[in-house]
Amino acid sequence: MNRLTLLMLAISASAFAQDPRQIIEEVQKRTRSNSQRYAGTLEVMGGESRIAIKKWVFERLGSFGQSKAVLRFTAPAEVKGVALLIVNHPDRASDQWMWRPNIGRDQRIALQDRSTRFFGTDFSFEDLEERDVDQFDFKLLGDEGGAWKIESRPRKSSQYTHSIMWVKKDNYTITKVEAYNKNGLARVIDYRDFEQVKGIWTARTTEVFDVGRKSHTILKFDKLEYDLPLKDDEFTVQALRRES
């Protein structure tokens, strides 16, 4: 779903071990697919142990900077049909639109608003983007527990100043990400319950911890599929309106 999630599967390539950019390129290569679909369940745990549960269906066509994605909420009933269209670009931030069926309106998500939380979860709108490796600078920080520790700094506009990723050496899956903004550590993302689907290692569970708000969001993947036939014209604003 988000750019970090899509970098989870990796193939062994010891020749790339010491060059962080090449490590990440390998991570991307191992997770590349023509399309993806899954049904996700979100549990948002906020203050006072409050839990909100939402479900959505996610579809993606293409990979990374050449991809488009539609996320459509399916539950609860109050939010069913609300959708988000993400059109990623290889050289700049994505374009995003939200569709609200009850009002019958689409709405562009401004670049300035990408740092806001995504509909009450601990992901931000920016976290839903996929960016190519060329949009970052990387630095290897060392090894830790059988994983490379790599720092990435976005070259273009981002709410984050840098991130630190842990990439497992054996299968090039990303197991943890710490995202920093100008105020310090902003989010911690853990990936677990890895499973191979059509040869791609995928974490079935992703947990995001918002350091400032002290809240968690757990995303669980279900019915995950890769390389299924999806049409390009299903990833447009007009299609969002039609589908509702």
Binding site: V44, G46, G47, E48, R50, A52, K54, F73, E78, V79, G81, V82, M98, R100, N102, I103, R117, F119, G120
Partner: peptide, 16 residues
């Protein structure tokens, strides 16, 4: 109330 509506702005936005 722990920012109920805006903790879950989706409901706020989805319901006109």
């Amino acid at each position: 109330g722990a920012d109920t509506a805006l903790d879950d702005p989706l409901v706020f936005l989805a319901q006109p």
